[in-house]
């Protein structure tokens, strides 16, 4: 039998590479967004809350800060809302900030009125701060330690154990 060796070896090689490449995609979420900010200084900002109070991140240096980006049209944000409502009483030394992402202040105010509010929610005109943080969807939560560094970014809703794990790290100078 006459075997075309180049075709055989080349073809099987290409097949193996291709299958390995396609297989490498399993277990990765193609929709995941890279976390550029972890390990870097949290971008400073000065914004005004829905209640009209100015908040500046630079003034909060030295305190652990949790910044949660959310909006009223996002279902997972609504899911994590009760947890975030409770959190400030559980971790009184941590500053919680909400930043409203791509939403209208009126809708946010109405939502907070009915859903409850325990910490300031900041209006982000033009999404500037969201872009500074590299937000690519909501909810996203940034954990800033006492040195002002982002030690973790969570894309998607957070859960109680995550807070319990990260807050002690944020307290460490």
């Amino acid at each position: 039998m006459k075997v075309n060796v180049p075709v055989l070896l080349g073809g099987l090689f290409i097949t193996a590479i291709l299958v390995a490449m396609l297989g490498s995609g399993f277990g990765h979420d193609p929709r995941e967004v890279p976390k550029a900010l972890e390990g870097r200084v949290a971008p400073t900002f000065s914004l005004v809350s829905t209640d009209g109070d100015p908040v500046s991140l630079a003034d909060l240096r030295g305190k652990p800060v949790i910044i949660n980006f959310w909006s009223t049209w996002c279902q997972p944000c609504r899911q994590e809302h009760p947890l975030l409502l409770m959190a400030p009483s559980q971790y009184p030394d941590v500053v919680f900030l909400g930043v409203v992402y791509a939403d209208e202040p009126a809708k946010v105010k109405a939502y907070l009125k009915s859903g409850g509010q325990t910490y300031p929610h900041l209006i982000d005109p033009g999404g500037r701060v969201s872009i500074d943080y590299g937000v690519a969807g909501v909810p996203e939560t940034y954990f800033v330690d006492v040195n002002g560094l982002v030690i973790h970014k969570e894309a998607g809703p957070i859960w109680p154990d995550l807070l319990a794990e990260l807050v002690p790290k944020m307290r460490k100078p």
Binding site: P34, A36, L37, E38, G39, R40, V41, A42, P43, T44, F45, L57, V129, D132, Y133, N147, L149, I151
Partner: peptide, 24 residues
């Protein structure tokens, strides 16, 4: 490029020069 930055995440305080503030 990217991976170095990711690797440095573990020891953020080690960098001597003032880190860049993306907000400014």
């Amino acid at each position: 490029s990217y991976c170095v930055e990711a690797a440095s995440a573990g020891e953020p305080t080690a960098s001597a020069e003032a880190p860049v503030d993306l907000g400014a």
